[in-house]
Amino acid sequence: MRPVWEEPPTVPGRALKAVILTLLVASVLFPLWTVLVTSLSPPSAIASAGGFVVIPRGFDLSAYRTIFAGGAVTRALWISTLVTVIGTAVALTVTVLSAYGLSRPGSTGHRWLLAYFLIPFLIYPPLVPKYLVVTGLGLKDSIWALILPSAVSVFNLVVVRGFFQGIPPELLDSARIDGAGDFRILARIVLPLSSAVVAVIGLFYAVAYWNVWFDALLFIDRNDMYPIQRVLQSYLLAGQAPHTSGAAASLPPTEAIKMAVVVLTVAPIVAVYPFIQRHFIKGVLIGAVKG
């Protein structure tokens, strides 16, 4: 309800606001819609529309069938899934352990260790030496080159640590008096109480791993190890047909197949987005305030 003291909006003001907000929302939804509809359109509809289909005419899954029949896109989706699942598991484990290990001021070496973890937040690892370290460790063309360098996000660590520190210390003290060690306290008391923040941070990591592109440009030379963003780039931006080894190699990329690749790249993000959205404002801000 409008407060009584506030003057009613002027007509031009309201119209301007409506136009701006509508355009903004449409600028996000319209491209998603067009890409989805085109990917599901039969070739005739695409041809008569001249490339992009805005109003659906007919329904055709053949673009997706072609993609999933095997070849570069299927493999890239598989690699990206692996990177996302393993990467998220590794990153969450390391982040939660580190956050708990740093959550008790006054513990042995606490100040030094905290500084050790926070400094990389201010000084990013420089590109060239990082490249030499990763290749020097023999990680080139391995999914670990995409996972390990970004497995500790100091920002996420600070958010989780802030949440852990908000848990009433009496809960932990009573467990300690009963003889529980820190690993047991973390697993039995702290984690069940912080499932929401851990879930959100996990989704942040998952999105980052799904989106990994530049690290793949640096560290992945073999095209049968490409993650999906790399394939999307070489296929849609650089205009190269995806490298395939099978018989499907000679198939010309139709507009529907291109759009289907876009849809498959967006789909996991859109699928997890409601879960992130439900929590992230709370989670991000709690961390930011306490951090």
């Binding site: 390391v94 740093l102 690892p125 990082k130």
Partner: peptide
């Protein structure tokens, strides 16, 4: 136990942040 928990994070930051920074 707290210190053991920090080992993976310390190692990862050492290898992928501190060594590259020194590598400058």
């Amino acid at each position: 136990q707290l210190l053991v928990m920090l080992v993976p994070g310390v190692v990862l930051l050492l290898v992928f942040s501190y060594v590259p920074i020194l590598g400058n």
